[in-house]
Amino acid sequence: MSEPTKIRATVKGSDGEVRILIPHVMESGLRRDPSGQLLAAHYITSLILSLNGRPVIESALGTAVSANPLFAFQLQGIKVGDKLSVAWLDSKGQKGGAEASFSAA
């Protein structure tokens, strides 16, 4: 988790396009290492997007989300300069996130 969460937030008209990339192993707990030992589960369980400090998208994630998850969302009524923040929590209690301002597309 050394690499930071990345956000791209752009505005077109009044639509805000958001792309989020979270470097994370997203280990499902169902895979085995070469010696046959199960690899411990370690995956993001929740993700929250906030617009100007107010939560707008909230999610619960399971083990079927790919490694280094990439998500795209659309927000409405957005202006350049509006602030978007992303926060996540994983199954080991580790947290991460990022913040960005919407810019013109």
Binding site: D15, V56, I57, S66, G77
Partner: peptide, 14 residues
């Protein structure tokens, strides 16, 4: 989704 968010997304799944 709150009202400010469109009910849509893209993701990658296993």
């Amino acid at each position: 989704f709150a009202p400010e968010a469109a009910a849509r997304f893209q993701a990658k799944l296993r």
